[in-house]
Amino acid sequence: MIALLKRDLKLAFRVGGGALTGVLFFLAVVTIVPFGIGPDLNLLAKIGPAILWIAALLASLLGLDRLFQQDREDGTLDLIIMQPHSMTATVFIKCLAHWLASGLPLILATPIFGLFMNMEPLAIAAVMATLLVGTPAITFIGAVGAAVTVSLPRGGLLLAVLILPLVIPVLIFGVTAAYGAVEDPAPFTAPFLILCALTLFFSVLGPITAGWVLRNSTD
């Protein structure tokens, strides 16, 4: 299992710039926002957490369609299925590797983009904390979509359509908690804990479902 984690990380960082592409996409989304709404720093500071969350959400969807597809195309998936490891654990490890390679760099890059958005240090810290807790949930739900669309040559778009409505709760509580940290009457702890609960819930539901789908997906 550790071998699988190491292999997936290696592949993620070697092929196509891996983590860097996600961060660049993140940068691109954050950069176009001021062009859309004007360079009003106060407004940007106000909507900053939301923009960062939406950008991170879109960036995490990027490349999710390749989570199992590459392994399927070169025959690796067949062999992985045959091994005496539970598919749930295998999918969990693959999600973990994907998140480490594409989610974590985004979170580490958040402070820089937070400054672009004229956000206060506390707000930036809150966004980082919520992203750290929330983005794994996106990967775990995404794994189900990736497993279902694994045999489709252009599954990426379909994956996004299938997954976006399901990750709305993650977005809602992530952004709410981020705002809760800076705006006084709004709560932080409650939405943050719900966000943790969502991630834990999907870390179980996602791998079990995706593993089952993959085991039955061979043809």
Partner: peptide, 24 residues
Amino acid sequence: RSLAVITLVGFINIPIIKFSVDWW
């Protein structure tokens, strides 16, 4: 299989979505 799985995952999610949208 794909349709059934996504339908059920959606079904499990609908209460969560409803709850979060109400909260929001």
